[in-house]
Design a protein around this nucleic acid. Structure first.
Length: 903
RNA sequence: GCCCAGAUGGCGGAAUCGGUAGACGCGCUGGUCUCAAACACCAGUGGCCGCGAGGCUGUGCCGGUUCGACCCCGGCUCUGGGUACCA
């Protein structure tokens, strides 16, 4: 009987759905295990073979854990709000909800075909009102809480009011003043800052949504603009987000990325007295190098700094204004392109160096950022390369502070050496001088120790339609929370998805978008809002009373294994951790960290194929001959190319232009060129999982994707090896059949058979636990190879073999399992016990035929001569027992330690 | 520039603790089956020398530690990823 994967896979997928095989209960005697995939954004293009890579790995792990006796939570859902659906809606008028639903059903179909063991009864969609009710709920909680730096946690805003009242800073304020005051403390707050404004998308974006001055979605230019926006006070949690990393089982590189993004730096704030004509001000700067105070020869303000206006002298006013205007006009991208180009103007005022008393000029330059520190710096050109470049351009003095350093051509940035020219710091090393200087500054009352973080608060409003509405209305201009009973505040209908003519967000088009006569906020929430707590909602997806029931949360706790791409390192994975910590502070969740172990699967790149058209003709020349002609390289659909050989007929049918194509072949074939590129529609290199399932079956697809290489590594999709994996499954199938009859013997297994089986069990177990899925596939191939060489068809061997295989190839495993006479699904079978005795050559209880290599520890003779060593081996009773007189071909000796013996 | 990761046959990749490098798969070569092809099966396959037994050489480059190094240490080169005037 042939291995009919089509039929088998259809049959078992239907069986699983009908029997709710993968539905999970919220209570069980079994230990819990939570395996989560990063849920996908359902795009119009559908899944390509790259998407399921992580899903297959997590599915294997889930199925493995079930076999090991765990109650496994393995859910899936959709990150369904987002820009592409809305851009599509703008172009076509089609409601984003409609396209999203359509895309979701296609995704579901594709995923079902791969045989995932998701508990679909727990599916969530971030755009469902019953789901975003809890996104809005969390937002309101953030609005109603503040971060108390004393207790290091979120507390109700009322405790802050109480504090102000006690300090006498409350009752004398007007209602508006009170609201404004609290806004400075709320965890979700309205605040004015420089934001990333993307004119093409008509919205602001968070820092992680911008890369190299372009929007991540769409690649449109982004500019800096001061705007009043909703923000989340993520920065308040900076220290806890940083500390929490230590206990997580994530890769070092990912933790490092988060550490850099949080960007903790320890230093001091120092006050400089600044004189502008007859006016005097105290300007605070931040530095990590307080030890270099004696080398300060000028100061610099960011162009956007509030000090600029106050510190510009009348004489310099015009020059400064021109400079500011020019700086303002530049887009973010232009600024990046012009990095290292030194620009700046003198403000006209002078600061006083607090340690030397010297007058230092105050300059204004783009190289100082308004958003970091205080937006003002002390410049030490001798020991900072940026200050150095500035000083050389504008002829400012350079005062070296470290013995023997040469600053004639470049600054000396290293934090090492002995201080000089530095008053009381002279003679100290830099490492001693930094704390000493800070201490001095504190004692003199001119500054204090300060820790700075690079991590910014998250901009939380988007001037878009397809997102969660804010449950906020404005009473006489005061932002006010809607009562919880009003949630979910559903997204209203609009006639068009574009901004209004006056530049208001699309929600301004919604009729009656108000609460009890008060206008409701018109922005919507960003993509990361819905994805920040979805892992909690899966625990209790139907609960209408709470995001997640307390007891249910206490059972599932947090995610044990999370699999997804690195691209979320500084976005979702930070926001989610922040969101979770906030809910933890409020007592809604029982764990500080949401994701215990995280694995980043690599990307599967596309492998594009090319044909070469001779210019101005419709003739195509094969790869090997193309250099003889003047040709144009054209991407050709990889689905009509097999092993780089073009299907000529399919090519003629592919596009009308090519219907009359002529070919110049080599050896009767057309060989295509190839290159590794991103998998995308425009390069015609997209391979759909459906195509692979059609041709080889889901089990082959699953095993092949794992076989491709280490999970974490990026690699191109290449179908070259897929036949080998398919061949393996057919070989396995054949072991159960004698001709067309299913034939399994009840005979007792031989030692060799047991050895082959247990080598597999041991290897599969440790490989799966180490997420080394590719080598497990090899282990399967070896075991099946060995067993078919032994013509093994014994139940005692084949039954455990099928169980071990089932996480990888669940359909064929179920079929064989049922043919073996089991009525229950294999999903909850017991993973076979690994018996080391069967596999270890020198095991006492079960000695197997000795041939090959062994490692022994024996007492070593004084010399390493062959005779003496061999004599020592044979003298060792335990070793000799297994040698059984076999000739020793080769011996590798370590003094008193290890011997490798080849017989 | 800074931080992180990596480099192994024609290709994807193994090597769990420092112990026979190249498992497994692909590809290729030869063979069996077939009228033929496909499928399947068997044998070979890092390089060099040799009919052969076998020998030499070999994990990006240079050096070190060790009886022994893909693995540990020092210095480079290259590739991938992150980040970028963060004071």
């Amino acid at each position: 009987m042939d291995y009919n994967f089509q039929e088998i896979e259809k049959k078992w997928q239907a069986y699983w759905a009908e029997h709710h095989t993968f539905e999970t209960k919220n209570n069980s005697d079994k230990p819990k295990y939570y395996v989560l995939d990063m849920f996908p954004y359902p795009s119009g293009a559908g899944l390509h073979v790259g998407h399921p890579l992580g899903y297959i790995a997590s599915d294997i792990y889930s199925r493995y854990k079930r076999l090991k006796g765990f109650n496994v939570l393995h859910p899936m859902g959709y990150d369904a709000f987002g820009l592409p659906a809305e851009q599509y809606a703008i172009q076509t008028g089609q409601h984003p909800a409609v396209t999203t639903a359509k895309n979701i059903s296609r995704y579901r179909q594709q995923m079902d075909r791969i045989g995932f063991s998701y508990d679909w009864s727990r599916e969530v969609r971030t755009c469902d009102p019953s789901y975003y009710k809890w996104t809005q709920w969390a937002f309101l909680k953030m609005f109603q809480h503040w971060y108390n730096p004393q207790t290091q946690k979120a507390e109700p805003i009322e405790t802050l009011v109480e504090k102000f009242r006690k300090e006498g800073k409350w009752d004398n304020l007007s209602e508006k003043e009170q609201a404004d005051l609290l806004m400075n403390y709320r965890i979700a707050y309205l605040g004015e800052t420089a934001v990333n404004w993307c004119p093409a998308l008509g919205t602001v974006l968070a820092n992680d949504e911008v890369k190299e001055g372009l929007s991540v979605r769409g690649g449109f230019p982004v500019e800096q603009k001061k705007m009043r926006q909703w923000q989340l006070r993520v920065s308040a949690y900076a220290e806890r987000l940083l500390e929490g990393l230590d206990e997580l089982d994530w890769t070092d590189s990912l933790k490092e990325m988060q550490r850099n993004w949080i960007g903790k730096s320890q230093g001091a704030e120092v006050v400089f007295h600044v004189v502008n004509g007859d006016k005097e001000y105290d300007v605070t700067i931040f530095t990590t190098r307080a030890d270099t105070l004696f080398g300060v020869t000028f100061m610099v303000l960011a162009p956007e700094s509030e000090w600029v206006e106050k510190l510009t002298s009348p004489q310099q006013k015009q020059t400064v204004e021109e400079y500011l205007a020019a700086a303002k006009k530049k887009t973010e991208r232009e600024r990046i392109a012009e990095t290292r180009k030194v620009t700046g103007v003198f403000s006209g005022s002078y600061g006083i160096n607090p340690v030397t008393g010297e007058k230092v000029p105050v300059w204004i330059s783009e190289y100082v950022l308004a958003g970091y520190g205080t937006g003002a710096i002390m410049a030490v050109p001798a020991h900072d390369s940026r200050d150095y470049a500035f000083a050389r351009t504008f002829n400012l003095p350079v005062v070296p502070l470290i013995e023997g350093c040469d600053v004639s051509n470049e600054s000396f940035d290293a934090k090492e050496g002995i201080m000089t020219n530095s008053g009381f710091l002279n003679g100290m090393t830099v490492k001693e001088a930094i704390p000493a200087a800070i201490e001095y500054v504190e004692k003199m009352g001119i500054g204090h120790r300060k820790v700075n973080y690079r991590l910014r608060d998250a901009i939380f409003s988007r001037q878009r339609y397809w997102g969660e509405p804010f449950p906020i209305c404005y009473k006489d201009g005061i932002a006010t929370a809607l009562p919880f009973e009003e949630l979910p505040l559903e997204l209203p209908e609009v006639d068009k998805f574009l901004p209004t003519e006056s530049g208001e967000p699309p929600l301004a088009r919604a009729k009656g978008w108000e609460y009890k006569g008060y206008p409701i906020e018109r922005s919507t929430m960003p993509g990361f809002a819905g994805s920040s707590a979805y892992y909690l909602r899966y625990m209790d997806p139907k609960n209408d009373e709470a995001l997640v029931d307390k007891d249910v949360n206490a059972y599932w706790r947090n995610v044990d294994l999370y699999i997804g791409g690195t691209e979320h390192a500084t976005g979702h994975l930070i926001y989610s951790r922040f969101w979770n910590k906030f809910l933890y502070d409020l007592g809604y969740v029982c764990e500080q960290e949401p994701f215990k172990k995280l694995i980043n699967q690599g990307m599967i790149q596309g492998r594009s194929n090319f044909v070469y058209r001779i210019k101005n003709t419709n003739t195509f020349v094969s790869l090997g001959l193309k250099d003889k002609y003047d040709t144009t390289e054209i991407h050709v659909d990889v689905n009509i190319v097999h092993n780089d050989r073009l299907d000529l007929e399919a090519f003629r049918r592919w596009m009308p232009d090519f219907a009359t194509a002529e070919f110049i072949l080599e050896d009767g074939e057309y060989i295509c060129g190839a290159a590794v590129e991103k998998m995308s529609k425009s390069m015609f290199n997209v391979v759909n999982p459906d195509m692979v399932c059609e041709r080889y079956g889901a089990d082959t697809l699953r095993m092949y994707e794992m076989f491709l290489g280490p999970l974490e590594q990026s690699k191109p999709w290449d179908t070259k090896g897929i036949d080998g994996v398919h061949r393996f499954l057919r070989k396995l199938w054949k072991m159960f059949f004698d001709g067309d009859t299913f034939s399994v013997s009840e005979e007792k297994a031989t030692p060799q058979e047991l050895k082959a089986l247990h080598k597999l069990i041991g290897k599969a177990q440790s490989d799966i636990e180490n997420f080394s899925f590719n080598t497990t596939v090899s282990a399967f191939m070896i075991a099946v190879g060995d067993l078919s060489d032994l013509k093994c068809n014994k139940r005692e061997i084949l039954e455990p073999l099928v169980i071990v295989l089932s996480p990888y190839a669940p359909h064929i495993a179920e079929e064989l399992w049922s043919l073996l006479g089991h009525e229950e699904t294999i999903t909850y079978a017991r993973f076979p016990e690994y018996v080391e005795a069967y596999t270890v050559e020198n095991n006492v209880t079960y000695p197997v035929q000795f041939n090959g290599k062994m490692k022994f520890t024996v007492d070593m003779p004084k010399s390493y001569s062959r005779e003496e060593v061999e004599a020592a081996i044979r003298a060792d009773a335990g070793t000799a027992k297994y040698l059984q007189g076999a000739a020793i071909k080769k011996v590798i000796v370590v003094p008193g330690k290890i011997i490798n013996i080849v017989c």
